[in-house]
Design a protein around this nucleic acid. Sequence first.
DNA 1: CGCGAGGCCGAAAGCCTTTTCGGCACATTA
DNA 2: TAATGTGCCGAAAAGGCTTTCGGCCTCGCG
Lengths: 342, 342
Amino acid sequence: MPTKPEKKRRPATLADVAQMAGVSIATASKALNGRSQVKAETRARVFAAAEQLKFSPNAMAQNLISGRSGTIGLVTHDLEGRFSIPTLMGAEDAAGNGRTSVLLCDARGDALREKYHVQTLLGRRIDGLIVVGARPDPRPSLGPLPVPVVYAYAPSENPHDTSIVTDNRLGGRQAAEHMLACGRRRIALITGDADYGAAHDRVDGAREVLDAAGAEIVQGDALYGAWSEEWGRTAAGLVVAQHPDVDGIICGSDQIARGVLDTLRETGRKVPDDVAVTGHDNWEILALNARPQLTSIDMRLEELGRQAAALLFDAIGGRADEGVHVVAPRLIPRASTGPRVA
Amino acid sequence: MPTKPEKKRRPATLADVAQMAGVSIATASKALNGRSQVKAETRARVFAAAEQLKFSPNAMAQNLISGRSGTIGLVTHDLEGRFSIPTLMGAEDAAGNGRTSVLLCDARGDALREKYHVQTLLGRRIDGLIVVGARPDPRPSLGPLPVPVVYAYAPSENPHDTSIVTDNRLGGRQAAEHMLACGRRRIALITGDADYGAAHDRVDGAREVLDAAGAEIVQGDALYGAWSEEWGRTAAGLVVAQHPDVDGIICGSDQIARGVLDTLRETGRKVPDDVAVTGHDNWEILALNARPQLTSIDMRLEELGRQAAALLFDAIGGRADEGVHVVAPRLIPRASTGPRVA
DNA sequence: CGCGAGGCCGAAAGCCTTTTCGGCACATTA
DNA sequence: TAATGTGCCGAAAAGGCTTTCGGCCTCGCG
């Protein structure tokens, strides 16, 4: 059946409420906002009228006065990506609990699109901006903007901007320390694309710990390749062929670790009895479905996002805190690591 | 150069531009908006002033007049989820190309939180609302709202709402037809949680095609279990033990398919020579890393999101199109299917 | 009874922009 | 010259709300 041409009923305004309650607009406003200069009985009348008219204050008008929009912009570069989403979640969470809403834009790694989005967001008078990167390497600064900016996951190249990132070096250390705690002494490092600073940071952290403990890094250095299971299988094949006595493999990602586990199983190594394996990212869909389930480094990205929002709110409140902040990851122990079984 | 002691550098307003250009506010507005009643030379002066002051019109004031906010709300229930994100991307894409921005809220499957978010979104005078579900089963309607609503991925229970979903039944048919095209005649169906309507829809679609072709469904019915690799391994073990002559397995998800592939390899079956396998969802991180790479049904969720936005814009424009719309999935052929090799 | 003190309420300004409409200056026509 | 156009521009209202400030009324106290 066709739509009934109902008269377009615009939403109730404060004036409507005031009229129904028999008071002035000013009084209605004060009543609804809890100002003290209204008699209790009057206030009740106003509330009743507002209720009946389903009045909800026009945020645009309110913001026009206050000069604040009660929104923050969230520009992401990787909406389909694994890493930006949890960050976004944390930020949305921190914002949603308050009175601010999130305007989302996806710039898809395109600087031009980013600029365009930032411009329209500024036109909407956002109170602040969070920029979520697609990968952890530093990115160009947006330059001075009329509102505070926080760079999350990917830090700004400008140290005077406010950034918050995950501590990849510490993640590497945690993996290595865990290996040592499991009694492993001949460790292989298999990681992804050497173009990623994060790959090196994780390796550096691990090497620092292993060197200090006098443990061996088989082949002397990490194996760089790709962030894929395929590379994990290949690299693990190399390692077990050339160093049959390897007893621990630290992987730069959970995908790589999945590949490593496959090769180990197919070459007859028991995990963790013969070889312990750690992943990185704690991507549960991979880590929990692995055989055995995968010990992994959780970057706590959601927490990162939450803190990004917290930093932003601080900056909006005038307490800017420039520089690069870090969120400590944590190791989630599962069945792929444990003591050696000789 | 006498600089005024500006205490707080608020963003430039139209009045500032007008003053600098030596014209009235009205003229400045008309100049910037391309109205015809301005002399070219005057217009140039205004533009120059705007440029210099970095003027960007206050969207809140504009919207206050027009009554439209130029924003749409996007309520998701599964921000970390695999399925809502592409839908959200498509919607963001469709909106971002126009002049509308997206206000994002995550309700986390909580109806109360959803209600709260919808309320604040309405306060912000969104022009429309998209609700993205976490799973494809029908969900309660939000009831009549002062703005158009489109339910994406999870349809509304109310057939008079506008919903858009993926065609799971067709997805099942596509998988089955592909199996037949590959010459398979003894097919097993392994799928996930029987609580999901989508699981049944996919099975029904497949059965319809297989029955029509007179092909055998081993064990007579689908095996329902969980959406996990573990279940895929287990179920595949059952199937090959009881029906050694199975030559095709249609899986309800890529995760299940991954598990199935593992078991097939470990029981010495060659894929696709002995058994062909299809997944569902085309989750590339799983499908592309599988051995062999996995043929899968792509639900085209991004397209679904785009169409959701398109439907919403239509409704905002007065051309509402109620009912449940479907997006056709498509099969992505990869190495896990192919002709039998006797 | 007079007077200051509060307690409540309402008129009006203001936020920033768009849009309507009236007015002014100049050119054209009768 | 007077009447009519035409092209540009500006005053002012509108949009919904908050806030300031002045005014009225009642009350308590001297």
